[in-house]
């Protein structure tokens, strides 16, 4: 009995109905957080004493990097749940997370390049953190490509879940890379155990942007999974009912 709630999570119908209720709140929350965070960060946060206005790209670069890494764990855990409990829905989440992860990791690398030119003097440098973030991008891409390479969905799901699990080791490596190796990236600014070395007036909008990226990530993931559910369950009666009710309203 204790596991009942967990098994219910695996039901596409239950997931679709529950998320229908959450979607409006989540959409409003992400838009609000983005607007507040972006205006505060880009318009009102003070200039950095050394980098001037160019430091403001931190408000995109750092949140996208954080969520790209956190998203990898979501993907890997979804894959593990799929392997252990044989939940189809879990594999759907894994695949959708991989696609969103590609976008976020690319955004992180791209904004890093744009930031690198005015501060370091180069767009690209093979320092450990950039290299392992690039590996993260390749992992995400390979999981999506591997899934598309198999005609059988079940087999593709399992193989991709294993690859996702193997790749989890990359995340702590990216996180600790600036401490383990001499790198062009500065040592960690936001510290868990120690006092952060970013002024509070700059840190608050950064915090809002991080939450905004998490909200956007959840929103995109849910929307993507819902679309996938409709596609996969298109022959079932409950999907037919939803489609009919929507078309009747028009």
């Amino acid at each position: 009995m204790a596991w009942q709630w967990f098994h219910r999570l695996g039901s596409p119908k239950w997931f679709y109905e529950k998320t229908s209720l959450w979607l409006p709140y989540l959409s409003i929350a992400s838009v609000l957080l983005f607007v507040v965070g972006a205006i505060w960060g880009l318009g009102f946060a003070p200039e950095d004493y050394k980098q001037g206005n160019s430091f403001r790209i931190i408000y995109v670069h750092v949140p996208s990097s954080i969520v790209a890494m956190a998203g990898y764990y979501i993907m890997a855990v979804a894959g593990a749940v799929g392997l252990i409990w044989k939940m189809k829905l879990s594999f759907v989440v894994m695949r959708c997370a991989a696609i969103i992860g590609i976008g976020l990791t690319f955004l992180s690398l791209f904004t890093g390049a744009v930031w690198g030119k005015p501060t370091w003097g180069t767009y690209w440098h093979w320092d450990a953190r950039i290299m392992f973030t690039f590996v993260l991008l390749l992992l995400y891409i390979s999981i999506m490509a591997l899934h598309n390479a198999y005609a059988k969905n079940d087999l593709a799901d399992k193989i991709c879940a294993i690859l996702a699990l193997v790749g989890t080791v990359n995340i702590p490596i990216i996180y600790k890379s600036v401490d383990w190796w001499y790198s062009l990236h500065q040592p960690a600014t936001i510290k868990i155990t120690d006092e952060s070395t970013i002024a509070a007036s700059m840190a608050y909008p950064l915090g809002i942007m991080v939450v905004a990226f998490y909200a956007l990530y959840s929103l995109l993931l849910i929307l993507h999974v819902r679309a996938e559910i409709l596609q996969r369950e298109r022959k079932t009666s409950w999907v037919k009912n939803i489609v009919l009710s929507v078309s009747q309203k028009r």
């Binding site: 370091w120 003097g121 180069t122 960690a188 600014t189 070395t197 002024a199």
Partner: peptide, 15 residues
């Protein structure tokens, strides 16, 4: 080639 490595501190000009 010379690259600048910036530090981990972000501080407003006034501070």
């Amino acid at each position: 080639e010379v690259l600048a490595k910036h530090d981990e501190n972000y501080v407003p000009i006034e501070v």
